[in-house]
Design a protein around this nucleic acid. Sequence first.
DNA 1: CGGAAACGTTCCGTTGACCGGACCGTTGCG
DNA 2: CGCAACGGTCCGGTCAACGGAACGTTTCCG
Lengths: 271, 271
Amino acid sequence: MMMETSPSPGCLFQPDPREPHPAPDSNSVLGKVRRILEVFGLDDETLSLSELARRTGLAKASVHRLSQELVQWGLLERRNGEYRLGMRLFEIGQRVPRQRILRDLARPLMIDLVQATNETSHLAVSDGLEVLYLDKVSGEQTQISRPSRVAGRMPLHCTATGKALLAFGPRQLLEEVMSAPLTRVTPRTTVAPGLLGQELRKAREQGYVAEFEQTRIGYMSVAIPLTGATGAVVAALSVTAPTTRAKVDRFAGLLNLVGRRMTKLLSAQEF
Amino acid sequence: MMMETSPSPGCLFQPDPREPHPAPDSNSVLGKVRRILEVFGLDDETLSLSELARRTGLAKASVHRLSQELVQWGLLERRNGEYRLGMRLFEIGQRVPRQRILRDLARPLMIDLVQATNETSHLAVSDGLEVLYLDKVSGEQTQISRPSRVAGRMPLHCTATGKALLAFGPRQLLEEVMSAPLTRVTPRTTVAPGLLGQELRKAREQGYVAEFEQTRIGYMSVAIPLTGATGAVVAALSVTAPTTRAKVDRFAGLLNLVGRRMTKLLSAQEF
DNA sequence: CGGAAACGTTCCGTTGACCGGACCGTTGCG
DNA sequence: CGCAACGGTCCGGTCAACGGAACGTTTCCG
């Protein structure tokens, strides 16, 4: 095992205030490649060689050499001098089993949900201290584009899916979230740890979570946890609607129905 | 080190039954990482350390070290001793712009198509000598699961999307396809280069391609090319149906309508 | 028009990251 | 009980990777 931070025994203080992804350092080749691939933000689209060198902090020659190799592999593409993420990344990413199985099983059920409500449904897992959206199905005209892209991230403590994962997931995760200050995403976001704990207790009683304008003003969500074969929570499923059309009981009822079916499907796959 | 097949010039027999991606060799770190990530087949789910070492041809110690680093990054995950592709691959893969833009723009139109036909619609690009499926939208009960997963691949010469890309794409690609023997996927697959050329000529006249049971017995498809801002073909869009419900003219008409809208959208994004 | 700045690319001597054979403790099968 | 296969660790030799320097070109101003 490798020691993360020097294991000085007295460091019960902040063992790891890092983001969900521990090490941006490392002078290994893989570390550099990681730097390169991860400086492409969600919207950066294309970056020049110099821009890459600047952002990664690597020598221009190194970036040049590695990028060449990445292009050859297909992880990067080159269009008139600019680099962007390559198609092979998408291809390999689609093979990731945890994602693929969950999506394949949930998709039809999410479509049912959307047809029954004409609202938007999200499928998410927890990663670090955030939710990672695996899929999203929207109703006819209901395009909620902004804060909930597929593969987008949001804090655990402000989203309905996140609260569901916190309420029904491992205690340790909750403690980790509580041990850092809760960022305020909207004026209505729960930032008091005590209040959050109360919300989660209520959630455990009710079997679902509701959230009003804590992630985005004008919208509310209801979410439930999805449990796998072992009984552990593996994901969360939600319905999001404008506050004007908030039908908490109806959403919760539908979600519970769908959740039961989903648990059966997951168990059948030994997930 | 294992050389794949030595590129002996006299091997016009089976020149390259390999995937469309040129170099599996290279003793660089990236080459090894590539080997590791790409031995995970579409269904392999999880592999043990020894299995990885065996498949990649790398030393066990090397696989161990690199896998550790990959796990730390999130490109691999470890569950009770077994490795599998990690969630971060999915996350990064979803950021790939060429894929994301095409999908985001096409998705609503594909849903329209599916609602109008109650059949299945595919979005695909060409990669090497194959089509790579970017998205797939199915009607109510119409689950065509097998040969057309998202991120799945099929030969260019037997699928409707592939023929569309060949008919309207760069001449050089067609020549490349023609220069290798055309594999027979079903008994009805076009394997005679002359016949393929004829089909493509007809396609260019009509503006669309139709294919009957060349990819899968019992099913047919109609496809059109999608052109970007520069006028170049960037993808293909298709409708697939059981042969019993083949309505070529209707499918072609709908696709043309959608294609025109898509071209406008792509141009607006300077794609 | 000319000079500076930024770009992508190549070169090359140095070095430390990577390699992989050998080895360890454990597990499971016959 | 012995053998084989497993995951994991060790360590000295070596070569792939490194990055500073310099290249030719383009772009942008003064």
